[in-house]
Design a protein around this nucleic acid. Structure first.
Length: 305
DNA sequence: TGGCCTCCTACCCT
DNA sequence: AAGGGTAGGAGGC
């Protein structure tokens, strides 16, 4: 069988290594070689191939509709070079880091998948999160087929995750206390009838409020979901690292010294500060800083071992 | 009082 | 072995 292939963009348009593997945005991409990635987008199997300075899209049913979805997923309509210039011009720290981390794109992901993935992410590291999300798909998602010897699944729907026995099963599968959050969050979505997609049109604070009402979702996870799947490009997820960055690098005043005493006001103040510096798309800028930060930590570990 | 805040701890696992 | 977070309880205002 020949697999149709269409041109997606230039290789320099998307930093695939960071965006798909280690960026902490998506946990579902499977790297099958140095230059090939596998995933499901819009319930269709998708292969990304980097070759000849370009990125190609392969799929057994490549059509214009899927191509549009993939372009949308990578937000290729945003002129990222201009945005990098803009962010560099307003912040020296960004300016010094950016050349090493080009083409970091904010993925426009599915809200349901993003919500449950980031419930898994709390107090957790990427390899384990990846395993857990994979488990959700294998255990409760529709199989979509097999390619290059890899079986792929759709992300389960919320009805399936809301089943009574899910908590027990996930606990047995090693989800720990997150097992209950997942089942309860699914239950909440059904009971309240909250339509996640419709939140894309709402203002940031409304989106944040709706999300933190969901069991297992606090302010940080809410902002991850808002930023990465609900078009809230100004949402800044404040975790330990960004908190430290805010205190040390940006010397934000008026913040409590210890992270343990972070309250609602202080949490939102950090996001506000970043928005003052970087503007409406501060969450995207934060992603670049975040990538640089975690990369720095990784190499530090390497040199110590 | 109720409501809202702060502080503290437990939670699973690698 | 300390951690990329949240919930729930106690106690204060």
């Amino acid at each position: 069988m020949t697999v149709p292939e269409v041109l997606l963009c230039e290789a320099t348009d998307i930093n695939l290594d960071i965006c798909l593997d280690k960026g902490g945005q998506s946990f579902t991409w499977i790297r099958i070689s140095d230059h090939q990635w596998l995933n499901v987008i819009n319930n269709k199997i998708v292969i990304l191939v980097r070759a000849n300075g370009k990125i190609y899209l392969q799929s057994s049913e490549t059509d214009q509709d899927l191509l549009d979805h993939v372009k949308d997923y990578f937000r290729l309509d945003y002129d990222l070079r201009t945005m990098y210039h803009q962010w560099s011009s307003v912040d020296d720290h960004f300016k010094s880091l950016a050349p090493e981390y080009p083409a970091i794109r904010l993925l426009r992901q599915d809200p349901v998948e993003t919500l449950f993935s980031f419930i898994c992410s709390q107090n957790n590291a990427i390899p384990r999160i990846t395993k857990m999300v994979q488990h959700l798909k294998v255990a409760y998602g529709e199989p979509l087929g097999e390619i290059h010897g890899v079986a792929l699944y759709a992300f389960p729907n919320i009805e399936r995750l809301a089943v009574e026995t899910v908590e027990r099963d996930l606990r047995d599968a090693g989800f720990g206390y997150r097992a209950k959050y997942i089942r309860d969050a699914a239950r909440h979505l059904i009971d309240t009838g909250l339509d996640l997609h419709s939140l894309r049109k709402e203002p940031y604070l409304t989106v944040h409020e709706r999300l933190v009402e969901i069991p297992g979702i606090g302010p940080k996870v809410a902002d991850c979901i808002a930023l990465m799947s609900l078009d809230q490009l100004g949402a800044v997820p404040v975790d330990t690292h960004i908190w430290q960055l805010a205190c040390k690098q940006y010397r934000f005043s008026g913040l409590p010294k210890a992270k343990s005493s972070m309250n609602k006001t202080a949490y939102h103040a950090v996001g506000g500060h970043f928005r003052e510096i970087f503007g409406d798309h501060a969450g995207w800028a934060h992603l670049v800083l975040f990538a640089a930060q975690s990369r720095a930590r990784g190499s530090l570990r390497k040199t110590l071992s």
